[in-house]
Design a protein around this nucleic acid. Structure first.
Lengths: 220, 220
DNA sequence: AAGAGCCTTGCTTTCGAAAATCCTCGCCGA
DNA sequence: TCGGCGAGGATTTTCGAAAGCAAGGCTCTT
């Protein structure tokens, strides 16, 4: 892997996980010492991140971690719903046996870890990261048979953006009725495998809207 | 404007207009002499273009102008329809007087030039470029009131990708029944301004599907 | 004659210094 | 006191050289 690539991944991870905060200026010297690389790979990484809307650069002002706002979150989430609803419909129409198998497999892997962590009181950072990965893999598996590389690309893109909000706000369901996310996933999976298209899309949409609402408190 | 930016625009324009052909390798030395810049700005430009899917780079093997294929075109076009249909619905729901005025204005500008060039036998290159610009501005105006920055971003993105196909194939309606594009635009505009949402979306969809069909011959 | 390994070659990727740019802050004049 | 105008400093942007890599050809061995 080239240096530029690995720097890109490190930087992206740091932004997504909130180790670099929104609006934080990304001075080249700072990044240089932080990641132990030179200007060129950094520049390349920052450019790629800019294309993903994770950093912005005002002209002449250098790069800055993208700001967050409720409006941005809702925009991203609604577009995400648009994209995933379409992709899910197509996957349901075209998915074969291998696709069904992958959906079941990724759901199971997610469910397993989810229950295990629910049992323990405090989860390690690495476990949470793994949970995030399995969550993403499940949602990706649902859509994978859609047949459109572009829709899958947009899934990755929007997933990253919304994940940043999720990891940033970190509101562990205080007060409000605790969601049974596992059950939501299971229902989506069943509707999908039974090819109940409209119902599956509705469940998926509700799933994401609820996620956005759970995050919303960040405007406080 | 920085050197990287202007190099980016030149390169993008050359790819969109077909002065750099699909699958053509983009050797750094070649680009260096062509645009009179050094490695760094080139690298930056190529990275941005890669994010827009206009160039690809196999690992280690340098950059290449993105290949074209009927499948790619259809994928891009169907996603484009998805995005623009949603944006148009939102614009129709939210658009104000200023929006309507812009729609009318951009349509008029497009129609004017379109008729003028239809009269003349052969159009200059600059005229065709201006026509493309006004065409884009009209479609953009339709959507502008949608309220979602992301949707508008995706419009720009997908517009560029599909435009490349349009300019690349260059099949001036030989044989097949000539389209009355101006009329299609007018009908879309009227349905939109009258807030006939479903009809407007249908017309827009048909407009794009017809465009894709007109381009399709590139698989020959 | 076929296969394996080494070298050459062309290109990319990385580097750190030099040039350009932009922002800040202090000074001057109104 | 306020606004405009540089000078200085910090930061980005650009450059060309050097290092790194991968592919293809060549030779040497079997």
């Amino acid at each position: 892997m080239t240096l530029a690539e690995s720097t890109y991944h490190s930087l992206r991870d740091d932004i997504l996980r909130g180790r670099l905060l929104p609006d934080q200026p990304l001075r080249l010297e700072f990044l240089k010492s932080r990641y132990g690389t030179s200007f060129s790979p950094l520049r390349e990484a920052l450019n790629r991140l800019q294309a993903e809307r994770l950093v912005v650069n005002g002209p002449g002002r250098g790069f800055v971690v993208s700001p967050v706002s409720p409006a941005e979150l809702w925009d991203a989430m609604e577009v995400r719903i648009l994209i995933e609803a379409e992709a899910l419909r197509r996957a349901i129409a075209r998915g074969d046996d291998a696709w069904e198998a992958e959906v079941v497999a990724t759901f199971h892997a997610l469910d397993l870890l989810s229950r295990r962590l629910d049992g323990a009181e405090a989860a390690a950072d690495a476990d949470l990261a793994e949970l995030e990965a399995r969550h993403r893999d499940f949602h990706l598996a649902l859509l994978r048979a859609c047949g459109s590389p572009r829709l899958l690309d947009l899934f990755h893109q929007l997933h990253a953006e919304t994940q940043r909000y999720r990891l940033l706000t970190f509101t562990p369901a205080r007060g409000r009725t605790r969601r049974d996310v596992s059950r939501e996933h299971r229902e989506i999976m069943h509707a999908t495998l039974d090819r109940r298209e409209d119902e599956a899309v509705e469940l998926l949409t509700a799933h994401y809207r609820r996620t956005a609402e759970a995050i919303h408190p960040l405007e406080a």
